[in-house]
């Protein structure tokens, strides 16, 4: 049973290929699960992802307006993106938003997980509360926050009542703040997800280890940094990878809260793609943008995984 391994060792879980058991048992294993069983899944993934995406990606090299027959224009769309200040702004915004989101979400999530791991009597109720935003539709989340962050909305009213007038801001309309307001909403929504990942990681750490260290006289903070933290590495790998993909793809929250504005102050690659395609009718250009976003996510994911996996091994 799974519970058995929990006591033996924390098991790493990451995006890298699973390593099957080697040796004699391995050969028998292969026979146990014939490749043919995977064929329906492979075919489905091939058709729905690879074939369909390649069919769609071709438009990135055309001037397609969505209606007339597209004509091939080579790399012109990519050249234009590289020379476009707003496009580069969207790239910078995306990276900024994703980094702050990943850090914020994981720090808050880890803090919640450590606090709600054991001891507290209300921990189950509190975990539910912190996790609840994760299951809400982005649409609903955005509508509530748009209302709260309105310049004359509850947040500013509350700040006013607390005598903090100087902190009142045009949360969604100030070019210096809009992106971070979106980021705040995303952290609020997804911290519970990180908390859940870290909680599971904490639960996989054998109680005996902690107790042994405690008997040896190690302080709580020393125990955390020397024992708990390193053993959380696999959970961190999953949590960071997941939040990175969420952050780089940020769309719903941005679109519903600021529409990328004011101007391009909170534009991300995902909203830029959508606008170029469906507001400006530049389907080919939008497709080129989408390809760049995909390559970016692939690159970031690959580098991140390499680093996180190396860290897992080192710890």
């Amino acid at each position: 049973m799974p519970q058995r391994t929990r006591i033996v060792r924390p098991v790493s879980h990451s995006l890298s290929p699973p390593r099957p058991a080697a040796g004699l048992a391995g050969i028998r294993l292969s026979q146990r699960a014939p490749l043919a069983w995977a064929i329906p899944g492979i075919v489905l993934c091939l058709l729905f992802h690879y074939v369909a995406v390649v069919a769609g990606a071709w438009y990135a090299f055309t001037d397609w307006n969505g209606l007339s027959a597209p004509s091939f224009i080579g790399l012109a769309n990519f050249v234009e993106i590289l020379g476009n200040r707003n496009a580069l702004g969207a790239l910078v915004n995306t990276l900024l938003l994703a980094s702050v989101f990943v850090v914020g979400c994981n720090v808050v999530g880890l803090g919640l997980a450590i606090g709600l791991h054991r001891t507290l009597r209300s921990r189950f109720a509190l975990r539910s509360l912190f996790f609840a935003p994760v299951v809400m539709s982005p649409l609903a989340v955005a509508y509530i926050w748009q209302f709260i962050l309105d310049a004359r909305g509850p947040l500013n009213a509350m700040l006013g009542n607390l005598g903090l007038r100087s902190l009142q801001k045009v949360w969604l309309g100030d070019p210096n703040i809009a992106l971070w307001s979106v980021c705040l909403v995303m952290i609020w929504q997804f911290s519970g997800l990180c908390m859940a990942f870290y909680l599971a990681g904490l639960q996989s750490i054998p109680v005996e280890l902690d107790e042994a260290a405690s008997v040896d006289g190690a302080t709580a903070s020393r125990r955390f940094w020397r024992i708990t933290f390193p053993l959380l590495a696999p959970a961190a790998t999953v949590s960071i990878s997941m939040t990175t993909i969420l952050g780089l793809r940020a769309f719903d929250q941005v679109m519903a809260l600021t529409r990328g504005g004011p101007g391009f102050a909170s534009e991300t690659l995902a909203t830029a793609i959508f606008k170029e395609t469906f507001v400006n009718g530049r389907f080919g250009y939008g497709a080129a943008f989408a390809l760049i976003l995909t390559v970016l996510i692939l690159l970031v994911s690959a580098v991140q995984l390499a680093v996180l996996r190396a860290r897992e091994k080192r710890l």
Partner: peptide, 20 residues
């Protein structure tokens, strides 16, 4: 070109925010 109306929206918003 629909993008021109798009600029009235995007740059128009930035202008209202004082950043253009």
């Amino acid at each position: 070109e629909p993008a021109v109306r798009g600029v009235l929206i995007s740059s128009g918003g930035a202008f209202l925010a004082g950043s253009k």
